[in-house]
Design a protein around this nucleic acid. Structure first.
Lengths: 129, 129
DNA sequence: TGATTAATAGGAATAATTCCTGTTAAGGAT
DNA sequence: ATCCTTAACAGGAATTATTCCTATTAATCA
């Protein structure tokens, strides 16, 4: 595991992810930073997203229309995903009882590293088709 | 929405998905049926998986290593996904309190169509690295 | 200030999924 | 039973999100 150096672009990515509530895709992060970093490469975005996830600073939310979405908010919470427009919205924490996942791990023999609750449906705007 | 005709291959896909507990990918469904249906096409597998999902007979479980996984079990339950070997296992139903999602829908303005709880970590075999 | 190597751009490569064209066959109408 | 409409299909091409590769740049430490 190599040491992590300071990187302007990675810092900007994390700042963007923390500032937005939109749970952007890699492409959207790229488009969002391209104006400020004209020589930004999409490969750099993917590499840094992966690294930020490994560091636990960013979470993968799930794939929407074939594209992974990322979240810079690390406090535990859940997500709503619109099946029509692909919008990802935050929901309050929704989880089974305290210690529930741990007990299941013992029972089924796994070690839980993370868990998530996702609601899918139609958002306010898409309801009226 | 066109009428749904009887199809040997689609029936076989559904039977396979209902019989297995492995939550296979499209490719795995294809490989599993190829012996019995030598002229089966991967495009057919994808098309029928999509249709079965629309009909509510099959559920998408989530992407593991870039591949979507499918589940023929429609009774409500949750899933464990191994971060190392990609194994998907069933867990008992884990959900927030009765009516909780409905209340959130009212509060946040969405219409929920489905929800899922996913635990990720290391399975029994992968624990010992 | 120089050495080491993480970070990067840019473009090529990979691979899951979708699309397209001509053919086959399910099932209702005759 | 036979004809008609069109859903289902095979096979292969196209699309596209993501990863990989190579040479270059720059962060950090001695």
């Amino acid at each position: 595991m190599p040491i992590v150096r300071q990187s302007k672009k990675r810092d900007a990515m994390l700042a963007l992810l923390r500032a937005t509530g939109r749970h952007p895709s890699a492409e959207q992060v790229y488009q969002g930073l391209k104006p400020d970093y004209p020589d930004l490469s999409l490969a750099t975005v993917y590499r840094n997203l992966g690294q930020l996830c490994e560091q636990g600073l960013v979470r993968r939310v799930g794939t929407v229309n074939g594209q992974e979405r990322y979240d810079g908010q690390t406090a535990p919470h859940s997500h709503f995903i619109c099946n029509r427009c692909g919008r990802v919205a935050d929901l309050p924490r929704l989880s089974p009882g305290e210690g529930c996942v741990e007990r299941l791990g013992v029972q089924y023999g796994f070690t839980a590293e993370s868990w998530e609750f996702i609601v899918r449906g139609l958002c306010e705007d898409c309801k009226e088709f």
